[in-house]
Amino acid sequence: MAAEGLEKFTEVPVEFFKDGSAFVKKCQKPDRKEYFKIIRAVGVGFIMMGVVGYAVKLLHIPVRYLIV
């Protein structure tokens, strides 16, 4: 029973890595052009969101002085 458990204990990760690497190998990967396109889109979106968020945060500074 113990030996069986131990075997299972080593078997699961091995199986997992085998399946996982097979999956990744089969995967369709983004090509360079697609990749840069997405980076640009996400980057612009992220920076825009961040700048707006930070602007709201800067508004806090005068408010802080008012209430503290």
Binding site: F23, Q28, P30, Y35, I39, V42, F46
Partner: peptide
């Protein structure tokens, strides 16, 4: 991390 995620995000099996 952002660069890695964007790459990984597009790994897919069709």
């Amino acid at each position: 991390t952002i660069l890695a995620i964007i790459g990984l995000q597009n790994y897919r099996i069709e």
